[in-house]
Write a protein that binds this DNA or RNA. Sequence first.
DNA 1: CTTTCATATGAATAATTGTTCATATGTTTC
DNA 2: GAAACATATGAACAATTATTCATATGAAAG
Lengths: 115, 115
Amino acid sequence: MELEKNNYITEPGDIEKLKQDLPEDEILYDLSELFRVFGDTTRIKILYTLFESELCVNDIAQLLGMTQSSVSHQLRILKTAKLVKFKRDGKQMIYSLDDDHVRSIIALGLEHTEE
Amino acid sequence: MELEKNNYITEPGDIEKLKQDLPEDEILYDLSELFRVFGDTTRIKILYTLFESELCVNDIAQLLGMTQSSVSHQLRILKTAKLVKFKRDGKQMIYSLDDDHVRSIIALGLEHTEE
DNA sequence: CTTTCATATGAATAATTGTTCATATGTTTC
DNA sequence: GAAACATATGAACAATTATTCATATGAAAG
């Protein structure tokens, strides 16, 4: 039988201190939620098509060889995450990137994967 | 009945041109795969704990109130994605962030969510 | 070499999620 | 107002995945 012993690098008190340094659960949840949106091939592809020009739903679907329905579903998720915005033009909805974070986040991701 | 008509913003030929500008499928898949790793609350939390100091598995588990098994499973995914690295110290495995992309990607993500 | 401690891993389960199909909403044209 | 077109949306199904439980590996201590 062992007596009390502590092989940990951190002292037991340190754990408590580190725990307090963590951001609130809600913030970390929102953060992971954002990345989850980027974490799907279809959505990444959609975002990429919008890098160059704004496009309507049908164009995106054709470009990616996907159904209109599937693209529309995914656009909704991208809208909710404020990654794309849209305007109406007659019967069509024209989608475009919402802000420059999209570009920079994807660029950073590429830097990592390309290593 | 309508005659042939084209309401699209893009000309039919443009679609083909845009299609060629898209990166290869594999690159986009790897990219979404990377973000999928960030897209889980547990893994984001683990990464965050490693922002301040390197830690062993048990410390991380205590810090986050999770089981050792669950943390270990997630660490494996983070290892595979080259987001964390580790060294052995006796019986313990000491984990730390693998490169600075982790910090910058998370920082960018926070910028977006905090808006 | 047996026990203990720290971590890893495999299988099973539960929950989440992307796509499809059918249909609804909304706009334009006649 | 009816028909045609563009997009959105709800339900169902299939696939992916995070956690748990049990157990395996591997190191240190006696």
